[in-house]
Nucleic acid binder design. Structure first.
Lengths: 336, 336
DNA sequence: CTGAAAGCGCTTACAG
DNA sequence: CTGAAAGCGCTTACAG
């Protein structure tokens, strides 16, 4: 059953049928009522493909994340989807594992589907040329992390640098002077800023505090390995506190500590970043820096919509506040 | 740049251009090579909306889950998406919170978008009529739980009943005779089967073991409240073991136990269901029943694809094995 | 306020 | 092996 059918049933032409259903101006109230009624009666379902072809856009947006199983992305995705639903848009989910070829292939595919825009966690795995290419492909793109270089991308993310600073402040205020920081691979802008904020703060206000930075995969496994290595080195003098670039890595540290009998926070304080749901459920409950994941997702979608309607001129950037969530994995070691 | 443009550039008509790009038979090798080359050179991107309109399908499938933030669904979604990617399909993500109106509205929207099929975690929140309606709406649907009644749905899920039995066996074998089971709201077929398997096994082989079943939200909060209530009742004689219908509820029990100073497994053994990633990270690491979430998602997609190509005749049903993952939250209380 | 018509960009019998 | 043509189901100026 097509528009044609309802037009026939209503005794009008397909043009006015279309106008009636789309609530356009310039159609008699009775006519419209009749058309609407006929559509309902015939259980008419407009073909969005046809509409999309005619109008030039599909009302769907693409969401490319590394892996939806990462609770951080799941939360962001929900924010995106709720906002999209409210705006009458659908979202196409893509998992890239941050692999360049998969990212590129998704972008091609989304463009072919004529999406209105794309939300994507990062483009840092792509070459400069590739970045340029997708930035100029015609559909607006908003990134979930800050981006230097190619400036046509919009961004929506937390104030990562401040998060790093807050973590440092918390640790320093509790008397810690031998600090360690576990971070992920180089190219993650979000993580890099956390590191920067943390390290700078320590160097500036740490009264001679020292901090060493180690990196691994930004997963529970990554944190586990780093911690395992650290704990098995009985000779060195351990840090009194570790700041991990995300909660997942902190979970890995906790597991390693459990296995090696290292008490947290007795022997070692630990602070994470993200505040995923399970941060409050592990043992000990994890002190961490909360970032508003859901809101970031929702905001990313709003930006996209604005970019679409405004004809995508200047990119837009949105930064979100972070806050310390103090639980049980850190403690004060003030001497007095 | 449209097909027309590449046809022009290649000096052929749009028909052969189309055929060349779609690898259809009956086009001269040189002609095709030329067309392909032109397409590449012009950076041609086919308009999938137009193609979809012409062919009648879109190559996208809809995935409707309660909430992607639930790690179980995230894992399933990844399975779906990987399989879809491999098959050249895209997936549209929808979060329903199991609300009937939201589910229905998504289904309408997906049908309007001419998806090839829909994967959906449950239809039990819908009325009989609504179920009938969507079962006969023309697009194949596969459910992520078993379904009685309307039989046109395909299904892909774990052997939940067996999972319940395994949990009972494990507990009984370890000497537990006073058992408790926390489950979710009534209409979840997956959970109900777990309960059935558990209870039946206990009654049949429990040598007089007793089991009480309590229900709440199937979330960490739900488990928390139930446990809190139980723990604060100092008068009654507690169970020696609890089986929760999923890991989330078990996490809630762990939190309550931590707060109230109840030792797990010292005072109380605990076994969950799902084996989500964090089951191994909480304290104590959770003994649970593993179900192959990723594979279930992938299988659901395969079923859908088969239903599409075969013209969606008979529904298809697929059940997946489960297994006990023994960690630290259960212990033997054999007297001898 | 309504209709006739062109067009969106593809696919696919049907001829040749 | 290739072309001319109809059709997929809508929208939207343009007339009236």
């Amino acid at each position: 059953v097509t528009l044609q059918d309802v037009a026939l049933a209503a005794g009008v032409t397909i043009s006015t049928a279309s106008r009636s259903l789309n609530n356009a101006y310039g159609v008699h109230l009775e006519t419209r009522a009749c058309v609407v009624e006929c559509a309902r009666r015939l259980n008419y379902r407009p073909n969005r493909l046809a509409r999309g072809l005619a109008t030039g856009h599909s009302n769907v947006i693409g969401l490319i994340v590394s892996d939806i199983r990462n609770p951080y992305f799941a939360e962001v995705a929900r924010g995106v989807e709720d906002a999209a639903y409210a705006a009458g848009r659908d979202v196409m989910l893509c998992n890239s594992d941050l692999k360049p070829d998969r990212q590129l292939s998704y972008i091609e595919s989304l463009i072919e589907k004529r999406v209105d825009g794309i939300i994507m966690n990062s483009v840092s795995a792509l070459t400069r040329n590739e970045q340029f290419y997708i930035a100029n492909c015609g559909v607006p793109i908003v990134l979930l992390n800050p981006h230097t270089g190619e400036s046509r991308f919009s961004t929506a993310c937390a104030d990562n640098e401040k998060g790093g600073r807050i973590a440092a402040e918390h640790l320093l205020a509790n008397g810690h002077r031998r600090l360690m920081h576990f971070t992920g691979p180089k190219q993650h802008a979000n993580l890099t800023l956390r590191t920067n904020g943390f390290v700078k703060k320590v160097q500036k206000f740490g009264q001679g505090a020292e901090v060493t930075v180690l990196s691994a995969e930004r997963t529970s496994e990554g944190g586990y390995h780093l911690a395992k290595q650290l704990f098995s080195d009985r000779s060195s003098n351990w840090p009194t506190a570790i700041f991990t670039a995300n909660d997942a890595m902190a979970f890995g540290v906790i597991r390693a500590a459990m296995e090696m009998g290292v008490s947290i926070p007795g022997k070692l304080s630990l602070i994470g970043f993200d505040d995923v749901e399970l941060a409050g459920l592990v043992h000990p409950p994890l002190t961490t820096i909360r970032q508003p994941k859901y809101q970031i997702g929702a905001a990313a979608l709003q930006i996209l919509l604005r970019r679409v309607s405004s004809g995508a001129k200047e990119p837009e950037h949105s930064t979100f506040g972070v806050e310390l969530v103090e639980r049980k994995s850190t403690r004060s070691i003030q001497s007095r």
